[in-house]
Computed example of a mutant assay.
Amino acid sequence: MAAFGTVFMPEMALATYQNDQWSDTQIVQSDSIQLHPGAHVLHYSSTCFEGLKAFRHADGSVKIFRMDENIKRMVQSSRLLNLPAIQPDQLAQMIKDIVKQYADEVPAPPGSMYIRPTHIGTEGAIGKAAAPTAASMLYVLLSPVGDYFTGGAKPLRLLLAEDGMRCAPHMGMIKSGGNYASALGPILQAKADVNADQILFCPGGDVQETGAANFVLIDGNEIITKKLDSTFLHGITRASLLTLAADLGMQVSERELSVTELLERAAKPGTEAALSGTAAVLTPVGTLIQHGKEYKVGSGEAGPTTMKLRQALNKIQWGESEDKHGWLTSL
């Protein structure tokens, strides 16, 4: 099967902003866009995106998971990047319209249709290094994807990085491509040096997030993760899993977590750690690496609570459990 996110539906929804107004939405070919070589996005990184999924249910219907929250976050990212303000209703309709057009292509579980709304600055103006773009483009790509864990949920190896950050602190809660670019070099270095799958950024010993996912620690009946602030991404999968953990009677602790406490708790039998995100839902973490030394998390394998939470979320997404929180949107 093709690599995750490399197959696209032939058309996408697109709208443009110029002269202080948004155009009507068009359905256009998804293999190219027209862009001036001086476009603001190419020089000054005025770009943000979202990642969400549509799922096929047993009755044949297609539901989009937590679309409203993704739209809210994209509106926020656009505002914080000083891109033109997105119209939430228009983006919601763009997403629903293009998913409806390709509803027959939405894979059955554990597959899904990955949805990638993208907003970029398009004004041709290379003199605007310290000024926002006056024009932009908003489009919604679709990519049918299979199970992220084709070979099973193999526990990840994380390098603890206490002397760096994923991105600039004021950019952390923005879902922008530059943040991923900022983390890529350290991640590749960690893979080369200690065979790490990801870096867990812990500036000054404060456990934050990895290059592309939020981090949670599970110690008995307690699930611990960093309290939301501007320095890291406010994950929608993270929020969903914390809600489900509370539903299951777990103690949810959103607070500061130091590297020292993390390593102490990780050594205890039964402790689990995981990464949450749209693509992988909840991925087990088996090993933490610090200063060349490896620390096993609990048994080093995928823990029962991690898999129980992942399954609980999947069952709602797949229509196998009641959607008590109103997370699913119909087309």
Rank of each mutant, 00 (worst) to 15 (best):
M74V: 03
H40N: 01
Q76H: 15
F65A: 08
A58T: 09
S45C: 13
Q34R: 15
H40G: 02
D68F: 10
R79D: 12
E69C: 07
K72S: 14
H57E: 07
I64F: 08
H40W: 09
M67T: 12
K53E: 02
I33A: 06
D68K: 13
A54T: 00
V62H: 05
G51V: 10
A54K: 05
M74E: 10
V62W: 01
S32K: 15
V75P: 07
V41D: 10
Y44L: 01
R79I: 10
S45E: 11
R66P: 04
H36D: 11
I64L: 04
R66D: 00
V75Y: 05
K53A: 06
L35I: 11
D68T: 14
H40P: 09
V62L: 00
L81V: 08
C48H: 10
Q34F: 04
S78D: 06
T47E: 15
L52N: 00
L42S: 02
I33H: 14
M67F: 08
S77L: 03
Q34H: 12
L80V: 10
M67G: 03
V75S: 12
S61W: 02
L35H: 08
L52I: 01
I33C: 00
G60V: 05
F49D: 01
V75T: 13
N70L: 07
R66Q: 05
S77T: 07
G38H: 03
G38C: 07
Y44M: 08
E69W: 15
T47C: 12
S45R: 12
C48M: 07
M67L: 01
K53V: 08
L80S: 09
R73E: 04
R73K: 04
C48N: 14
C48F: 09
D68S: 15
R66N: 04
L52F: 00
R66I: 00
C48A: 08
V75D: 13
D68H: 14
F65M: 09
G60W: 04
H40Q: 06
I33K: 04
M74G: 00
N70F: 02
E50V: 02
K72Q: 12
S32Y: 11
H43P: 08
G38A: 14
R73Y: 05
S32H: 15
K72L: 12
I33N: 05
K63M: 07
T47I: 15
T47M: 13
V75M: 14
A58M: 11
H43Y: 06
I71L: 09
H36E: 12
I33W: 06
L81A: 13
V41A: 13
I64N: 01
A39L: 09
A39N: 06
S32T: 12
M74C: 05
A39Q: 00
R56W: 10
P37T: 11
V41G: 03
F55I: 07
E69A: 14
H57C: 06
Y44K: 07
K63P: 00
S45K: 11
S78A: 15
V75Q: 14
S46A: 14
L80P: 13
S77A: 12
D68G: 07
R56C: 02
M67E: 01
I71E: 11
Q76L: 15
R73W: 08
P37N: 04
H36K: 11
